[in-house]
Design a protein around this nucleic acid. Structure first.
Lengths: 356, 356
DNA sequence: CACACGTCGTAGACCGATCTACAAGAGGTG
DNA sequence: CACCTCTTGTAGATCGGTCTACGACGTGTG
């Protein structure tokens, strides 16, 4: 067996008695602090081993560090988030720090509660993915404990950030669609309530880029934004309605891969294929590469983002106070869900003629 | 703002001073224990509110409960596990308990480390999905803290279990494939090292059911088991080799949906479709229902399993000591990735004739 | 030989809560 | 009016570590 079985509650006191030394001595050994003779270290280590002693993190937390970092995350269902976690876990793997994850219960005040729960547990640092929490609140938080935020475009001096270049990523998607010849491009994005007013959440930026790209291509009058929840099923429903309209769009740019999957689903449900309606997403979740899906999307390298966040946090914990803001360059991945638009007959063509 | 900003470190002492009462009084109020007059409660609550006081979980943990339950989980990349978490989070949502998740770092002793980390942090209970940890170790653990294991078929009196009926689920898959007329059915399962010897892990049972079903159908000589890692890419490679063989199987039964996706991927890569090679999985992850995938699989209702596990754990924490073992009934979901086998020419037909 | 110094180990305060035991005061009863 | 009981609040020990201050014990130096 790799590990000793957990033994009821052996305290530092027990170890001290067993080794015939003081509590302080044992404490020194386990922290390998200065002032320990090899002989004593050996005796104490032996006692620890024999009794299966494990220091209580709670007791430790009362004075010093807990060697725990907290990762707050909204919904695990979107496969992009586990990528962040995987990256962070890997980066943390060598360090003495343990990662614990607090899921933000969507039923409760989005993020706040989960982050609070971590802080209450005396974590030595926090990584969070809550784009909606108030900047001032975060500043106050960051004054208490090192904080790294993922996916925020604001630049506080109090906390670090890791974020993808959504401007560039969304720009690439729009250029791609426009280059293919699409003009009726709909943007699918989370409901307004889910995007803070100019909070700089990624979705808000993607939306903005969409609008500007359409304007710049002289398609300002064809701008159309559909709001829907995250998750496949909601977006599928929304897309079904959209596709049933007489002059349906020729392309849909979804703010994330999950809703994009919903749109693809709807396209299939409506008896259509990407040849009729192109679909693009954002994140490049693993399944997007599957031949049955083959979704054009933007790769953000979530693992790298998670790794970066963990590294920044460890630096902060180690003492750095100057803020750092890392931007990860995204990359368009073209697959078969986006194709040139097919010329259509009837109403759409007439409308197009009437306009030009 | 929904929540007060985190204020440095307000202790119970500060609150007591502010309200002009003793520490013990404040403690009583926050635990809403007996012996508090409405007047004092009001004064104290006001002080708590005013100072933004939050009790330290570490300090609490030193004597009593931490109101924290730990969830150990291997790899988040398989979308089935987040389902468990979602269920547990939902079930916990009403209770005063906070869920924290410890990812089992695959680089380190599988599960042990993560579970230990949780116990070190004084959680009031543990839910774990480590099918490989030693039963004796678990018994020792369960003597210390309430434990619920997910996906184990052993029945200890020390800990509760929540598990799918893999016998039934795998049986349904095999019956389905055999009914369709398949004879050359390959089973894809994790490498032997990943399945403990008769530890009763789900994969071992599915494998066993596969073997017996083949025997019972007089296809004992066509039994073929391919070992591969979890994850899409490994199984995809393995499947590509398999499909390149002269007499490739007509159906593949994968022990999980993730490897099943890999097989589907390989089928497409090889220029084939499920009409030539049927594929079945297990778990019914969300994407399986997507028309581009349409994977026949077994629904396990992961959310329900997570919810059950959380409920059992809360019961244990509340004092129950008699063990409970919940079995969730799985259900075959037939989609288009499984179809009747096509008669083939050449070698395969000759071989078949020679046998019969 | 007295003194300073470096090394090793210990005593005890301290962190922030909980919880037991007890005291003070209010109200009821014979 | 003494006595009992019930309610309400407090003092102080306690949990298991960390950390500072200090003492004891060689060793080297003038």
């Amino acid at each position: 067996m790799a590990v000793k079985p957990p033994t009821g509650s052996v305290t530092i006191e027990d170890v001290a008695r067993e080794a015939g030394v003081s509590r302080a001595a044992v404490s020194k050994v386990i922290r390998n602090a200065y002032g320990v003779s090899p002989a004593m270290k050996a005796r104490v280590s032996e006692a620890i081993e024999k009794l299966g002693y494990r220091p209580s993190v709670s007791a430790r937390g009362m004075r010093g560090a807990t060697f725990t970092v907290g990762f707050e995350i909204p919904e695990l269902s979107n496969p992009f988030f586990p990528k962040l976690l995987a990256g962070a876990t890997a980066a943390m793997s060598g360090s003495p720090y343990q990662l614990i994850i607090a899921p933000a219960d969507p039923a409760h005040a989005e993020g706040y509660r989960a982050i609070q729960a971590l802080v209450d547990r005396q974590v030595d640092g926090v990584i969070a993915v809550s784009p909606l929490v108030d900047p001032e609140w975060l500043e106050a938080l960051a004054a208490t404990v090192p904080v790294v935020m993922i996916g925020r475009h604001d630049r506080s001096v109090a906390y670090d950030t890791v974020v993808g270049d959504d401007e560039a990523g969304a720009g690439q998607v729009m250029r791609h669609l426009l280059d293919l010849g699409h003009k009726d491009i709909v943007h699918l994005t989370p409901a307004a309530g889910m995007i803070g007013v100019d909070s700089g959440v990624p979705q808000a930026i993607r939306l903005d880029v969409y609008r500007r790209a359409m304007q710049d291509a002289d398609l300002g009058d064809r701008i159309r934004v559909v709001r829907t929840g995250n998750g496949e099923s909601e977006s599928r429903r929304a897309a079904l309605q959209l596709l049933a309209e007489p002059d349906r769009p020729t392309a849909v740019f979804a703010a994330h891969d999950e809703p994009a999957l919903g749109v693809l689903h709807a396209v299939a449900d409506a008896g259509l294929t990407p040849a009729e309606v192109s679909v693009a997403g954002y994140d490049d979740i693993e399944i997007a590469a599957h031949p049955g899906i083959s979704l054009t999307t933007v790769n953000q390298d979530g693992e790298r983002m998670g790794r970066l966040a963990a590294e920044l946090l460890l630096e902060r914990i180690a003492g750095r106070s100057a803020p750092r803001h890392e931007v990860v360059r995204p990359e368009l991945v073209v697959r078969t869900s986006t194709r040139p638009p097919r010329p259509r007959g009837g109403a759409a063509r007439l409308r197009a003629l009437g306009r030009t």
